[in-house]
Design a binder for these strands. Structure first.
Lengths: 363, 363
DNA sequence: GTGAAAGCGCTAACAA
DNA sequence: TTGTTAGCGCTTTCAC
């Protein structure tokens, strides 16, 4: 059998296949899409020749014709944060299962980036956009970005894990209030009533909700609110460290600390260990996100788990339903759970660090 | 002025713009590509109308015509590992600077996935493929995968951070031998001569090289080789823990441990702390990768730093040079550096855990 | 069941 | 400087 090599290095096209199989390009296309009847004998031959030449259909050409590319664009705040990495991977797995490809873009610190990436995804004709972090986390949504999103969503559905006031995005939100409730119940159950909240910015939606809930719960539990127990910061280790230092400088430091995420909890741990304050004997530390940092930390961290797999599935399912114009709720809440580990324990009657700050345990 | 809305919800095309501006589509295209002269007056008008309609060129259509899509596909082993996340982000930044878009695909445990993703990237007509992890890390390359890669590289250049025997990929490799040399010099300089290597699989290229170099260096330093000081494992915390347990069970446990990466080092730390063995007083622990785990760990880890930013830049530059058919070396080595932190220190004359295993320090 | 032909949105000769 | 024209590789009517 004579092997008819395609000329030069030009990639093989359906026309090359068609010629060699003695059929039309349309028939080859039918075999490819598998959505029309082709005589099984011809089909077999076409498939053989495709295989022989390792034919790969050009996704751009297919996308140009179809509206559906089977690609979902994902804008993530920063995959170096395991929270986003886990979520991204969960989405990718869910997308793959549904026959879609996930296309990840990273936000990076630059705020302008967000708009640029969205434009890029739009140009790439993705079928839907998913966004975690960045402006969808803001308490008050950026007007300009909302305007852009609204233009995009005229054509492409968007799913976000936060909110964007005045947009018609689908929302899959973690129930931040519920998370705080779980932590507070856990801590008060252990006898704590001097509970501080560390890190996070008030203008971030989930942080704001957590703090609101914290105050509400204090009232419910009949614990007096102390302003100094809410120490705002950012979301990194350094900030956690600094916040904890401020708490330790108080007349009456807390006996339990709720960190806004695992990174800041790592900073809190570090700060306490540098001062030889024992965890959880002297102070309990709990946090949000349950990334592997929580597991790695020594002591391991009691943390709120969001079940990334489930969250990713929910986000992707929503996106695909929207693509296929099916009915899906505009807003879905995800139930967090509490994972209890070593860093939280019963409150001590009189924590050592109360009498004499720089308490040292024997080494 | 009458606003001529495009019919229905159909996205605006250059034809819509052309009609409204009273020019031809070619002229609009010229404005878009900005590579031909257009009377500035017309250009201005075209730009205005584009702006007015928020026109976004269809990247698929552009890609169909041009061979260049300005997209680089990245296959990463698992972005949940901060090593890959850092590297990926570094690549993304470097790509962006060069006017390219990075398109991330995650490998996940499944080996078949690798081939599927490569096919997908090929179908998506990316201009180049970068791969970290997976089969490019194997000591002995999978023949089937090499065959596929060779077909791909006929059209699309590939850059890998490992090797693929029999392929014509560009390689950017970390100098694993040099990394081991830095660690060994550091530890021997601190007086250690009972040095163990923990975790990692012998059939992984970089691990293999490290162990080879370890043995070579032992000889150079005149330290006797002990088989039991090389404890093979995987690359996670659990494995690090288990390996360390085995080392502690030895007649003469080591005084210093070289972990294969930060994850396994975290396991080693955990194991030691569970037994109240002090770091670095009783045992020094050092590791590879210098991810933030090294910084977070308590004590913080002395670790080998690969300078991700530099590595990402190098990988992307190689990819782009290959795309543009420029001359680039087929193989480049990257020089690692050593970051000394708290987990390594002078060897003790007689480590406590030598007499009586379950040594306890006072709490 | 199959082929011819039109067209997806854009770019790049080639003329004018 | 600009418009006309011909594709890029594929899918999808519409006839047959």
């Amino acid at each position: 059998m004579e092997s008819q090599r395609p000329p030069e290095n030009r990639p093989v096209t359906i026309y090359d296949i068609a010629r060699e199989a003695g059929v039309s390009a349309a028939t080859v296309s039918r075999v490819l899409t598998n959505n029309a009847n082709v005589r099984s004998e011809k089909k077999k031959k076409v498939l053989e020749i495709m295989e022989k030449h390792h034919f790969k259909p050009n996704a751009l050409a297919r996308g140009l014709v179809n509206t559906r590319r089977k690609v979902i664009g994902i804008i993530a705040a920063d995959v170096r944060n395991p929270f986003y990495a886990d979520l991204y991977v969960a989405c990718e797995i869910a997308a793959k299962k549904a026959g879609y490809t996930a296309f990840l873009c990273n936000l990076l610190p630059d705020r302008e980036e967000e708009s640029r990436l969205l434009t890029m995804l739009q140009e790439q004709q993705v079928d839907a956009v998913i966004q975690f972090g960045g402006r969808v986390d803001d308490m008050v949504s950026n007007r300009e970005y909302v305007r852009q999103v609204n233009r995009v969503t005229e054509t492409i559905p968007m799913v976000i894990t936060g909110k964007l006031d005045g947009s018609s995005c689908y929302m899959v939100q973690i129930d931040a209030r519920r998370a705080m409730e779980l932590l507070m119940r856990h801590l008060t159950g252990l006898g704590h009533d001097r509970i501080a909240v560390v890190g996070g910015l008030r203008d971030v939606l989930s942080t704001n909700e957590k703090i609101q809930e914290y105050r509400k719960l204090l009232e419910e539990y009949g614990i007096p609110y102390r302003e100094e127990y809410i120490v705002e910061g950012t979301y990194d280790q350094k900030s956690g460290y600094a916040c904890m230092e401020r708490l330790l400088a108080l007349q009456e430091p807390p006996t339990a600390v709720i960190a806004i995420n695992d990174f800041s909890a790592a900073g809190v741990l570090r700060c306490l260990q540098d001062r030889n304050i024992r965890i959880p004997e002297d102070i309990s530390v709990v946090s949000h996100d349950d990334t592997y940092i929580a597991e790695f930390a020594i002591p391991s961290l009691t943390s709120i788990c969001y079940n990334y797999e489930n969250m990713g599935r929910c986000v992707v399912e929503t996106a695909i339903a929207a693509i296929e114009q099916k009915e899906v709720p505009r807003l879905r809440y995800l139930e967090p759970t509490l994972v209890v580990r070593e860093s939280s324990g019963r409150v001590r009657e009189s924590p050592c660090f109360l009498e004499g700050r720089a308490f040292r345990r024997d080494r």
